[in-house]
Structure formats: C-alpha cells, structure tokens
Design a protein around this nucleic acid. Structure first.
Lengths: 219, 219
DNA sequence: TAATATTTTTAGATTTGTCTAAATTTATTT
DNA sequence: AAATAAATTTAGACAAATCTAAAAATATTA
C-alpha cells in the first residue's frame, strides 16, 4: 500500500507515542504533530479505513500489525538517512533530524536497499537508536562506551556524545567516524589511554577523555 | 521563496521545454507533465502571481529571471542526486531518473552543499548533462571519449555508455566509476590499448573496446 | 473572409489535509 | 449524583491541485 507524506507522519508519531503509552489519545498526537485535535480525528478515520490502526471513537487508538510494519519501514528509512548524513556528509548528529524527516518519505525500496549496503548495513543510527531491518525487526544491541570495552574483538562506532569542534577535530585526525570498525589492542593503566586500530589504518593511541565519548557495539 | 513540489515540477518542465522553443504553450506543458490543459492554466496564474513566469493569456509563457534561477536550483539538486545514485549507490544511469525526481524536492541548501562536496563537486551527471553550480551557472564542458583523449592530463569520468553486466564487471575490476580521476600514461599502437592510472591505484591497461565506452572531461 | 478546427481559458466540482466553532461524550470535582 | 471541566468528535469552511465540460479566443482552411 502507498501512503501519503501526511499519513506516514501520523503513523510514525503514533508508533513513537505507543512506546510510552499503550493507547494514544487525540490531543497527545495533535501536540506531537503540531496540529489540531479535529485534524487528528479526521486522519484517524482515514487510517482506520486503510486498516492501519485500531480506533474506536472516544477511546484512543493504536497501530495494528499492518500499521506497525509501515511505521518500522518509515523509521528504517529515517535512521538510515541520518546515518548517511552523519557518516558520509559530515553533518553533526544534532543537525540531521529535519533533513531526514524529508528524505524518509522517498519510498523506493531499491534505494533503501542500496543505501543500507552502502552504509555497511548499520544497526544503530547516530543518536544511538536501533535501525529496523528489512523485515521490520529491531536489533537488540548493547552500546558500550569505548572506555568500558574490555575485550579485544572488533566493534563498530555507533555514536559520539561530544560534538564540539575540538572533539570532531580529534576524531577526524584519528579517522574515527560513525560506522568505523575499531579494535582495542591494549590499555595503558598509567593514564588510562588506549591503543586502538581503526579500520585498516595503523594503530594509534587515544586518551581516556576521547574514549569516554565514543560508543561502539558488537555485531 | 519556498515552492511546493508541484510548483517545482512545473518550473522544471518549463525550463526544459524552453530549451527547444522560446515560448511554451499550455498543451505542450500539459503533455509533458501528464496533466490537463486546464490544470496548467491554473498553475500558471499562480506562478505569475509568484513572479516566476511571464504569462499573458492565450499567448504562451516563459520563465523570467527569478523562475530560471529556481529551475536551475532544482536541476542542480536532481543531477547531484543522480550522480550520487550512480557513483555511490551503484545504480545504473538508466535507473535513477524516477528516484532523483523525488529526492530533488528535498530543499535543504546545507544538504546540497555537503552532497556536492562529498561527490567531489562534479560538473557532469551520469547522463552527460552539466550540473549547474550554486549560482545557477551551467559549466560548458566538452566530454571526450577516453579513446580519443590524446593528452596525458588527468581527467574525470563523466559517463559510461555501455551498461551491460559484462561492462560493469570490467569497470568494477579496474576501479573505474563515475567521478573517478584518471590519466592516460601511454597508448599501445599494436592493439590500441591504453595504459591508465585510476585515482591512486596502480596503473593498468584497458582495451580499445572498454576505452570507447568511457567518457571523461577536463576541469 | 467565412466556416471550421484547435488551443486556451473559465466555471464549477472533487480530493486531501487542514481549520474553527459548536456539539457530544467522558472524566473530575464538589 | 449533579455540576463542571476536559477531551473528542462533528459540521461546515478553506486552500491547493486537480478534473470535466463548456465558453472564448486564436489559427487554419476552403
């Protein structure tokens, strides 16, 4: 089924609100979407006829299986584009939301498939949120602060909590970015610095301060 | 000024039709946009009040300076996305038009600026059409068949005329793609093969057949 | 040039998504 | 439990973009 941009925005917002409360009410959704309660009621009637939500008047609503599948598809697109904007175009993670909101409505499945491959099939977006897979499954992945990483197995950089120019300068110098593969070689107890290997680069040493701002996950 | 997707599509189509005939007429544009003459008239009144076209009823219309600037902005977005889809996502050039038609309406200037840099500020899209610069200037660039390239100066790959899996397999093997920088090192008269250097790779030799399908330009 | 054909525009309707204001239903309070 | 408050829905309107059918203007042809 093909959805309009507006329908997609409603579906996505309902999904997010459902993470907090099982049933969603009209006013809450209206606030979330910067619209009026009457508009929400109108749209929900439409979504009901399209069999995307369970909705009884005056009783709130929620996505059904169909609607949830659609929501995850939209969220997948949104998070892949966010990853792209940060890992490839050098946006900072707090700048990408609005742009991804537009890109997420471009609906070519082939495009998303290729974008996913191009990004290395990432599991987590730059805000640290999981990216649903093609089948709408959300990976359960533990993000680990690089400083707390004890084993020597390769890990993928999922997010960076400090976005200051100074930090970004350092990350650039080390060749570390969202999606980078890295591995700890050893830890130096003296100043808690870490010797790491990033992708195929020569090993380097990063300070405790830098390590504490980098989050990684294992596949 | 902010334009709707529909307005942008009209502006873009008028631009393209103006390349053929100075004045555009209602029916021609209706055919181009798969719509009806009455709809075109309606939209042209709107574009006139927005001061994007010169339009007198029954006499045809054309973009004014304002409208032309907008058209080039949209075409810039379209062609940059096409370049991205081919050079980064491995689409073939005959598959990208419809997707770029959607992406071109995402209007963040910052996005386009960064996309442009990321692609290496390309001057030509994968169909061989010039990409307008930020100021709407169209580069005048001569595309040269790699086989006809005589000098040894570096050139940029702009398009590949043969999109067969066999050809793509070879290009992949040589590491040649849209946007690749390459340089002829020498030509072998015996079989007309060429020794070339692609980006920072080790030199390699390509056959006359391959060379004849690759188009390049000088900056 | 008068008749006919084509093109373009207007008039009025439709769809989508939105709104305001009023009515209805549910929830809360005294 | 009655009165009041809050949330939700309905009714009716509006803007954008489209359409059909009819009218008006322009172009072509006999």
């Amino acid at each position: 089924m093909n959805l309009t941009t507006s329908e997609e925005n409603y579906i996505k917002s309902i999904y997010h609100l459902q993470l907090v409360s099982h049933l969603v009410n009209t006013n809450t959704l209206a606030r979330e979407l910067n619209t009026k309660a009457a508009s929400v009621t109108d749209m929900l009637k439409k979504l009901k006829t399209k069999k995307l939500v369970k909705y009884e008047r005056y009783y709130g609503f929620k996505l059904n299986e169909n609607g949830t599948r659609m929501a995850l598809r939209i969220i997948r697109r949104h998070r892949l584009w966010e990853h792209f904007l940060v890992s490839k175009l050098n946006f900072q993670w707090d700048e990408v939301h609005a742009i991804a909101e537009e890109l997420e409505h471009v609906s070519s499945p082939e495009l998303i498939k290729k974008l996913d491959s191009y990004l290395g099939k990432p599991k987590i977006d730059p805000h640290g949120d999981p990216i649903p897979d093609v089948d709408g499954k959300l990976p359960v992945i533990k993000q680990i602060n690089l400083f707390d990483l004890v084993n020597l197995k390769p890990a993928t950089v999922s997010s960076v909590s400090n976005q200051s120019p100074q930090m970004l300068e350092m990350l650039k110098h080390y060749g570390i970015g969202i999606g980078s593969q890295l591995k700890i070689i050893r830890a130096f107890p003296f100043d808690h610095s870490l010797e790491i290997k990033v992708s195929k680069q020569a090993p380097c040493i990063i300070s405790e301060q830098v390590a504490k701002n980098i989050f990684v996950y294992h596949d």
